[in-house]
Simulated assay, not measured.
Amino acid sequence: MKKTLSTLAKVRDIDVLVIHSLDLCLYQASVVIGDKEFMVTDDIGNLVRAHSLLEIQKQCQNINANTQIMRQESAYDEMVGGPSKGKGNRLEVQISDNKLY
């Protein structure tokens, strides 16, 4: 499911802004509201993406979330033939927006 930046700027009960670290320098945003997670898009439906953490935080600066986290999921353990990790290899770190942009 998706929600636009302009819609999310009006919402006051956003639990978490999730910054997904997809690759070396590629980030994407989603939000958690209640028990549902929504991908963040611009007004024409394109996913919000950036090439730096500061750039994606600047794009999402009007989202009033209680918490911000960075999430990274890696498949590298499976690539070396290790045992299955069950739920995956997810790392989540709480971050803050220092408004350095």
Rank of each mutant, 00 (worst) to 15 (best):
G82S: 08
M70Q: 01
L8M: 13
L24A: 15
D13P: 03
A65P: 00
S30K: 00
A65E: 01
K36Q: 11
C60P: 04
K3Y: 02
R71M: 09
I19W: 01
V16Y: 03
V11C: 08
K2N: 06
R71Q: 08
V48Q: 03
S52F: 09
Q68K: 09
E78L: 14
D15Y: 01
S30N: 13
E78R: 08
A50G: 06
V32T: 03
G88V: 00
S21V: 04
S21E: 07
S74P: 02
C25G: 09
A9H: 12
L26G: 09
T67I: 13
M1L: 06
S84K: 12
I56G: 00
V40K: 03
N89D: 02
S84R: 12
T67M: 14
G81T: 05
V80E: 07
K3L: 03
L17V: 04
D77P: 05
A29M: 09
Q94P: 10
P83I: 12
S6A: 15
T4I: 03
R71F: 07
G34C: 10
Q59A: 15
Q94G: 11
K3T: 02
G82C: 10
K10C: 04
Y76D: 12
D13M: 06
R49M: 07
Q72I: 01
K85P: 03
K2I: 04
V32R: 04
G82K: 05
S6K: 12
K2C: 06
P83F: 11
H20E: 14
M70P: 06
Y27Q: 04
Q61E: 15
T41N: 04
G45K: 10
E37I: 13
D43F: 08
K87E: 01
S74T: 06
N64L: 12
G81D: 03
I69W: 04
N64D: 14
A29H: 01
D97K: 08
E73H: 11
E37F: 10
N62P: 09
D23I: 06
C25P: 06
R90W: 09
V48C: 07
I69D: 00
A75H: 10
A9K: 05
V16D: 00
V93H: 06
H51P: 08
I33G: 04
C25I: 05
I19A: 01
A75L: 12
A29L: 03
S21W: 06
K36M: 12
H51G: 15
I19N: 00
L100D: 13
